[in-house]
C-alpha cells in the first residue's frame, strides 16, 4: 500500500513532514515541502513531475545520500535522517541499491569487479562473492560479459551491469533515477523489463524517477511531484496515480 497523507503506520518507508531547502546564491529554494509518504515493502513506485520538482531530491533523501532540512525519513524502523555519515554509509550498503541514469560504473574495473563492489563491504568470502556476482550478472543476462570493461559494453549493457551491482547485495530498496534516460527505446525497454521482473519475481521495493510515461507505466503506483509537494490523485482529480494515467 502507498499513502501520501501521512496517516499510515508500520510501512517499510515512512516519510513525515519532509522539508528540503537549498540555498542558491542568497536565495533559499524550497525543493520539498511538508511531504508525507508511506510505502509498504514490495511496492513499485514511479515519481513523475517537471524538472526541478524535487523527484531526485526525494530519491536521494530516501537513499540516505542527502539529509532533510526538517522532517523524518524512517526506513524499516531506522530514522535514517538522524544517522551520521559513517553509519549512513554502512546503512546504505545494507539496504539500498542505486541505479543511475549515467550508469556510474567504474571505468577501470571489469563488469565483474563493478558488480562485486557492494559485496566488498560484507563479510562474504571470495568464493561466496563470486557466486553472488555471477548470479546477479546472470539475472541481467550478462554472464558472458563478466571480463569486459564498461567501454567495451553498449549503453544498455552498462545499465544492466549497474542493475546487477544494485541487486548483488540483496538490498531492501532499489532507487532508480532515470534509468532509461540515456538509452534508446529498445535498450530502455530491456532495462524496464529487468526492473519489473525485480519487482514481480523478487518482490523488491522500487522507487523509479522518470520523465518517461512509458517507463512510469511499469510501476504499480505513480506519484506526481510538483513544486515540492506529492499530489494524491484520483481518477478524475489531479492525478489518479495509476500507471495507466501517466502522461495524460
Amino acid at each position: 500500500m502507498v499513502r501520501v497523507d501521512g496517516k499510515g503506520s508500520g510501512a517499510l518507508v515512512e516519510i513525515r513532514s519532509l522539508d528540503k531547502k537549498y540555498r542558491r546564491g542568497g536565495e533559499e529554494i524550497d525543493v520539498l515541502r511538508g511531504l508525507n509518504l508511506d510505502v509498504d515493502a514490495g511496492e513499485f513506485i514511479a515519481f513523475m513531475g517537471p524538472s526541478g520538482s524535487g523527484k531526485t531530491t526525494l530519491l536521494n533523501l530516501i537513499g540516505g545520500l542527502d539529509t532533510p532540512t526538517s522532517g523524518a525519513v524512517r526506513i524499516g524502523g531506522d530514522e535514517i535522517s538522524r544517522l551520521s555519515g559513517r553509519k549512513l554509509a554502512a546503512w546504505r550498503s545494507r539496504h539500498i541499491g542505486f541505479i543511475f541514469q549515467m550508469y556510474n560504473l567504474i571505468p577501470v574495473l571489469t563488469a565483474f569487479q563493478n558488480v562485486q563492489l557492494p559485496l566488498l563491504l560484507t563479510n562474504l568470502s571470495k568464493a561466496e562473492r563470486r557466486k553472488h556476482v555471477e548470479a546477479a550478472l546472470d539475472l541481467v543476462g550478462l554472464s558472458d560479459r563478466m571480463r569486459h570493461y564498461p567501454r567495451q559494453l553498449s549503453g544498455g549493457q552498462e545499465q544492466r551491469v549497474a542493475i546487477a551491482r544494485a541487486i548483488v547485495a540483496d538490498p531492501t530498496i532499489l532507487l532508480c533515477d532515470e534509468p532509461t534516460g540515456d538509452l534508446d527505446r529498445a535498450a530502455g525497454d530491456e532495462i524496464l523489463d529487468i526492473i519489473s521482473r525485480l519487482s514481480k519475481e523478487y518482490k523488491k521495493t522500487i522507487f523509479l524517477v522518470t520523465h518517461d510515461p512509458i517507463a512510469a507505466k511499469r510501476a504499480g503506483t505513480l506519484l506526481h511531484l510538483d513544486k515540492g509537494t506529492l499530489l494524491e490523485c484520483t481518477a478524475d482529480g489531479l492525478f489518479a496515480c495509476k500507471p495507466e494515467d501517466a502522461g495524460k
Binding site: 537513499g63 545520500l65 554509509a89 550498503s93 542505486f98 543511475f100 556510474n104 567504474i106 563492489l117
Partner: peptide, 8 residues
C-alpha cells in the same frame, strides 16, 4: 558512486 554504494 563509491560513497553512495556504502564505502566510508
Amino acid at each position: 558512486t563509491l560513497k553512495a554504494l556504502g564505502f566510508s
